[in-house]
Design a protein around this nucleic acid. Sequence first.
DNA 1: GTCTATACAACGATAGAC
DNA 2: GTCTATCGTTGTATAGAC
Lengths: 242, 242
Amino acid sequence: MTGSGEGLTTLKEFQDWVDLSRQAICREIFARNSERIGVKKEATAVRNLSRIIDATLRLANEKGFQAMTLRDLSGETGMSMGALYTYIGSKDELVRLIQSHGRLLTGRVMHDSLEAVTGAVPRLSAAIRAHVYLTEVLHPWFYFSFMESRHLGRREIEAAIQGELASEKIFADILAEGQQEGLFRRIDVTLAAASIKALMQDWYLKRWKYSRRGVGAEAFAAHLIAFVLAYVGFAAPADGRC
Amino acid sequence: MTGSGEGLTTLKEFQDWVDLSRQAICREIFARNSERIGVKKEATAVRNLSRIIDATLRLANEKGFQAMTLRDLSGETGMSMGALYTYIGSKDELVRLIQSHGRLLTGRVMHDSLEAVTGAVPRLSAAIRAHVYLTEVLHPWFYFSFMESRHLGRREIEAAIQGELASEKIFADILAEGQQEGLFRRIDVTLAAASIKALMQDWYLKRWKYSRRGVGAEAFAAHLIAFVLAYVGFAAPADGRC
DNA sequence: GTCTATACAACGATAGAC
DNA sequence: GTCTATCGTTGTATAGAC
């Protein structure tokens, strides 16, 4: 962790800190699913896995996963249908693969981002920034996960719900900490944490809106931090109100 | 309008004020599309149209519109495939029908809810309540519209975007009004309006979360109003801060 | 107005050559 | 490891009887 204490502030710092390149991600996916994948050479497998996931996110985010056919995927990746099936067991397994690895990454990044940060306000800021920057870098991944969560089985849907609640709890805990420190006023921390999640989610659900207005990830994160701190009753430093 | 001045406060007042029953809605849909529908007797048409839309929302919200087949729809409605096609021109037209009428209702309800309300704070409260209560009553409708907007054509996607921006503008205008009245502090009204929309959207996107926690529409609306008023710098009445 | 029967295209998935 | 060819199934949509 480079900028400890206050957490990572800029998007660039965040990107330099975590390696969220497709290659790094697909290498880990390959390591975690090597038995089920018919191709044994890592370099080949990672390259093709990367193509498949990339094309899936592109096609599915444009017209939906169900509407994307494996023939579309074959065309977009430049691989034959037969070749696709050496990497994935079925079309449905592809959704599970992407979703479950997304949850893994989210949990890890959120945890690591807060590890060295102390104090409710810096932790709250760091958590919001980490989440916004993560969804900025992996935007297609998160958009896909949200929109296609219905195509999972009962068991996987439960995992998605638990992931949502776990990530919400991070915020609820920080808010409770701030109350105990006497920094935040009395609020319903669960309701407030849910609202913070809703605000952050807008960054990857309505990306088009912020793009066309020229609002970047850093400005958006700063806005959210100010929004939330106002609600919890913590006055922003260089602001003449109250 | 019954409770003028401050706007409608309880969910029940809202429900008594607007008729959002399936029957009333489907009667209007029939009136607006009577030429394209093969059935001429209103009573029959409205009853079957109601069945079709009801079943579509139920099936599509569970597993997605693309995954819902017309054979599913036939089974759920108790109508034959042939009968379905006397009401809808195609599967895609069914999405358009539901989405465009949803936008019509939203625009009308938001407009009428604010008509007799004056002052930035009452207007902001009334607008948030109207939106939360509307999406509470027509929850399946709004969930469907959000999730399936990608399955529309270019032209309809543009209409959906315009609807989103129009409804956002209602909030931006109220915030600007509050600033001019000197009630609200200096903020980016566009960014704030987008955040309000994001918060309200959570009510129909993550309904399961609030259901399992026992949070109702009125409590949720009250929470959002407090959240937003804190951000704009307007202190809540019975609250000892500032 | 509603039904049954069916057309025909496109889907996911696999076998076997290379 | 990757390709081509093809299987069986299921999708949307319609024609014509009732």
